[in-house]
Amino acid sequence: MSTPLLDVWEAAASSPYHPSIAKDSQFTLGAFLLLIALLLAGVFSLNRSILSLPVLGVPASLAFGFGAVYMICAVGVYV
């Protein structure tokens, strides 16, 4: 029996969804990004200035943001 949404499903047969980072690499990438965040935060704590806020704070925040998402997925809480 054919329904409109079943036709939509069949039409998209060639494009199954794959995440940009595979399940197996999530832990490695998450740990790597969190480590970078930790290192940059460490350097920032040694030299707190208005210049180091964007130079170190922004990449550290970005690394922590993406690293936290991948790490929480890697430990089984799929957000």
Partner: peptide, 18 residues
Amino acid sequence: RKPIVITLGMFAVFAVTW
């Protein structure tokens, strides 16, 4: 949305620390 919200939260921590 998720990583950006966490990024902004973390950046706020850096800014407050400074």
